Simulated scan of single mutants.
Amino acid sequence: MSIADVIERARAQGRRVLTEVESKQVLAEAGIPVVPARLATTAQEAAAAARELGFPVVLKVVSPDIVHKTDVGGVRLGLASAEEVAQAFQDIVDSARRHVPQARIEGVSVQPQARPGVEVILGMSKDPQFGPVLMFGLGGILVEVLKDVSFRIVPIAPRDAREMVREIKAFPVLEGYRGQPPADLEALERMLLRLSDFAQAHPEVEELDLNPVFAYPDGAVAVDARVLLG
């Protein structure tokens, strides 16, 4: 399904927020590396998707009404068998319904469990004066606590991407802190450039977050993603 098709379907359903599965679809289409995610609407579908993707897997609730999945018990990690996946599917749906009874629950996303890496965040938001603005910084919950981020107005050039990665205070972590291997900085710069291209090509996108992105010595991949339409 093309980027335009995904966006058109969401609009037809009266939604501004793409699900994680949809967000990853459009970002992958734009050349941004993501951990693949499959939508499962039953425990049997979830188990089948897990077998196809390979264990261990992660399950996350898929709902346009639930943004912070962990807060409602909507995430299960390290599932190593079809039986565990089937049980986790039911547990996630039950927990989400208890916490947010009015939520529309479409199912769960099934994705391979990514190997750990340095967590960073890439994002885009619309500024009323300057238009699309890219953000880069530490990922996970650290971005909310430390606010160690850099910004550039779209479009960016390769030099801008290089500077964005290097001007955060936590850059030594990416270089390889205390014996840890350095992250693939060029992979992060490519992601920023492709995100800039995506923002230019799709002005209907109001905001997006890739958090976390796992940076490795040999690449980088978005583990979670959220796209908001204008």
Rank of each mutant, 00 (worst) to 15 (best):
V21G: 11
V61M: 06
L27W: 02
V26E: 02
P33G: 01
D65C: 00
R51G: 09
D65A: 04
E45H: 07
V17M: 13
R16H: 10
V17T: 14
L79P: 03
V85F: 05
T41Q: 15
L77Q: 07
G74Q: 09
I66Y: 02
L39I: 12
V61F: 04
G78R: 15
R51L: 12
P36F: 00
A30Q: 08
V21T: 15
G73E: 09
V26D: 04
H68E: 05
I32N: 02
V34T: 12
A50Y: 08
K69Y: 06
E52W: 07
L53H: 10
D71R: 14
V35W: 02
S23C: 05
K60T: 05
Q44N: 13
V72A: 05
E83K: 13
A47T: 10
G14L: 03
T70P: 03
L18K: 13
V34R: 10
P36A: 01
G31H: 02
S23N: 06
K60V: 01
L53C: 10
A48F: 08
P64A: 01
T41K: 15
A47V: 11
V26P: 01
P33C: 01
T70G: 00
V67A: 14
A48I: 13
V72S: 04
D65V: 03
A28G: 12
L79C: 04
Q25V: 08
P36W: 00
A86S: 15
G54M: 12
G14P: 03
L39P: 07
K24N: 00
A30I: 04
P64N: 06
G74W: 09
L39W: 08
L59H: 04
Q25M: 14
E45R: 08
A50E: 08
E52Q: 14
A40C: 02
T42A: 00
L77R: 11
G14M: 02
A12N: 13
A50S: 11
L59P: 01
